Amino acid sequence: MDTPEILRRSFPDWDVETDHPAAYVSETGDAVQALMYSYLIWPALIERHGAVFLALDGNESEDFAERMGRPTPFVHPDWPALSWVDYVASFNFYEVPHLFRMLRGPAEVYDPSHEALGVVLREAWAARLAAAYPDRRFAVDLLENDGTMALRIVVRQTFPELVAPEGYDPRRRGIIAGPSGA
């Protein structure tokens, strides 16, 4: 199902003259709503320990510092070590259906609308990362629902290779402060 069909089914009583989303935006949206959603299209970026993170929640700087500095206190013997690259990726994945709590339109448009939005966000985020970090390369992938997680976008830096910061413990999944507290 393409975007025009999703919009027609979501607003069946509307008589719009074009299939372009602008026809719907001009009737339902305003500049304040556009600003509310702008962070999804052009997200803030945070760099920590040489890794780039998308900031979609608004308080990532503090959350990331706290989460990175609080290694898992208990390590189960069956848990595999988590590389720095995979640890960074664990911060940089977003399940598309979970970005919004409200559902609009008939149920048959939910999955197609999430897929269409995922394509737009993947392209926008790739452009955002390329503009902000022209000397780095990123993979921005849209991954299908696999039964454990919903449709999601995963961002990984592919060049240069990420290097784990001093004190990163792959078993405890966090940065353990050294004797100086750093």
Rank of each mutant, 00 (worst) to 15 (best):
N145M: 00
D19I: 13
W14K: 11
F74Q: 12
T18Y: 10
G29M: 10
T28S: 06
W14F: 14
L45T: 13
D2S: 10
S61D: 15
L40Q: 07
P71A: 11
S180W: 09
P73W: 12
R122T: 08
T28D: 04
G58V: 02
L162S: 04
G58R: 04
V88Q: 07
W42T: 15
P112E: 03
I6P: 00
A81P: 04
D86Q: 14
F11W: 15
L121R: 02
A124H: 11
I175G: 04
F91C: 06
V52S: 01
R128F: 01
V154W: 02
F93E: 05
Y168A: 05
Q33K: 09
D135V: 09
G50H: 07
L7N: 02
Q33P: 01
R8N: 12
N145V: 01
D111G: 03
E166N: 05
V75Q: 06
I153A: 07
E66S: 12
D78T: 13
P71K: 07
R156I: 05
E123W: 05
P73L: 15
D63G: 03
P21Q: 11
A31I: 13
Y94L: 03
R156E: 09
M1D: 06
D57P: 00
L151Q: 01
L121T: 01
L117M: 14
Y87D: 01
I176F: 02
A182M: 08
S90C: 03
W84L: 11
N145D: 11
I176Y: 02
A51T: 04
L129R: 01
A164T: 03
G69P: 08
F138K: 02
P80I: 06
S90N: 11
G181H: 06
A44W: 04
S38N: 05
W125C: 03
D63W: 07
P21A: 12
P160A: 09
D57T: 14
D13P: 00
F100A: 09
L56C: 08
D30H: 13
E17L: 13
G181C: 09
V109Q: 00
R101I: 05
R173D: 00
A131H: 08
E161W: 06
Q33N: 10
E66Q: 14
E66W: 12
I176K: 02
Y37R: 11
R152H: 14
N145L: 01
P71G: 08
R70T: 15
I46N: 00
G50V: 10
A177Q: 12
G69Y: 10
S113D: 02
R156N: 05
G105P: 00
T3Y: 05
P4G: 13
E166L: 09
V85L: 11
G174I: 02
D30F: 09
L7K: 05
D13R: 11
D13Y: 05
D57A: 14
S38Q: 07
L142F: 03
R9T: 02
L129E: 02
I41K: 08
Y133E: 06
A164D: 01
I175Y: 00
A127T: 07
S10C: 15
G29E: 08
W79H: 13
S83P: 13
P134M: 08
V25E: 14
F74S: 12
S83C: 13
F93L: 11
M102E: 15
A89S: 13
A139E: 10
P73R: 15
A55F: 03
E115A: 12
D15I: 08
F91Q: 09
H49V: 04
